[in-house]
Simulated assay, not measured.
Amino acid sequence: MAFRRFLRGSVPWEHLEGVTRAVMERYDEPSARVTFLDADNWLSTPFVVNDRWFVKVITQQNSLVHGLLTRGRNLGAFSSGTEGFFEHFGTPYEMAQHELAATERMRDLGIDAPEPVEAFEYEGMGVLVLSYLRDFETLDDLPRESIERHTPTVFRDLHRMHEHGLAHGDFRCENVLVADDEVYFIDATSVREDAIADARAYDLACALGALEPLVGAPLAVDAASAVYDASELLAAEEFLDFVNLRPDHDFDAAAIRGAVEKRALDNDVV
């Protein structure tokens, strides 16, 4: 537990107060009510100002942890027979800028995401500001019937990213929010553009792995196959074991393989 606390780190209270004052000044807020989110996040400290501004504070320690995670994930990609495709940025401010740009790109593609506001630097920290979604739930907190209803939208939006040369890079149900019955993507990370095909297959493997425990492999694969062809599903299959090593994924890889291979056989791909 001590090691986990070290990795997660903390932001001194006076720095959080300073960031809050900066937000108040930038957006003409006469006072601030700050709500800290119950999030197990090693890459930032998130909080909400006046139920309007979602703020992520990224420290140098968060950047260090991101670099360690990036190297570990790239080693895992090597074990799957591909080059590493995750990218790391040198400073907390660059991390904030990247997430802002990724959020803007998703919205430009017609994918629902919180409205990006800005990224700025404060005392060597990166600060990302987005609009705050009120009354949201993460995908995995919904009843099964609601998850089943939203699953086709999840794969449709992921496929739209992939069609336009964008990969999410960190698909987890915690990064899919549902507010007012609409699906929103958050926390996109960075992948190397020259390895985008592998990154897309990894994204798809993550999505199948995240949804299999919630809706079952057949339904997840059927929903994916509405927008991905059998060869793309088979490419994702190559990353299932790698994805299942992640502590935030736990799924029946054999069940997904069976459903994917059945779909491929039905389409005479294998």
Rank of each mutant, 00 (worst) to 15 (best):
F3H: 11
G9K: 11
V11C: 05
W13Y: 12
E14F: 13
E17C: 09
V23T: 05
D28E: 15
P30M: 05
V34D: 02
F36N: 11
L37T: 13
D38T: 13
A39L: 13
T45A: 05
P46I: 07
P46Y: 02
F47K: 06
G67D: 15
G90C: 10
A102N: 07
T103D: 02
E104F: 04
E104H: 09
I111K: 07
I111H: 05
D112H: 12
A113V: 04
E118Y: 08
F120S: 01
V127Q: 00
L130F: 05
S131Q: 13
R134C: 07
E137S: 15
T138R: 15
D141W: 09
L142Q: 01
P143F: 00
E145I: 14
S146D: 06
E148I: 14
R149Q: 06
R160L: 13
L166S: 03
G169Y: 03
N175G: 04
V178T: 06
V178R: 01
D180V: 02
V183D: 00
Y184M: 01
I186F: 04
E193C: 08
A195C: 13
A197W: 11
D198K: 12
A199G: 09
A201Y: 04
D203Y: 14
A205K: 08
G209M: 06
E212M: 06
V215W: 01
G216V: 00
A223S: 03
S231M: 10
E232K: 12
E232Y: 05
L234E: 08
A235Q: 09
F239V: 10
F239P: 11
L245P: 10
P247C: 10
D248P: 11
D252G: 03
V260N: 00
E261V: 12
R263W: 07
L265A: 10
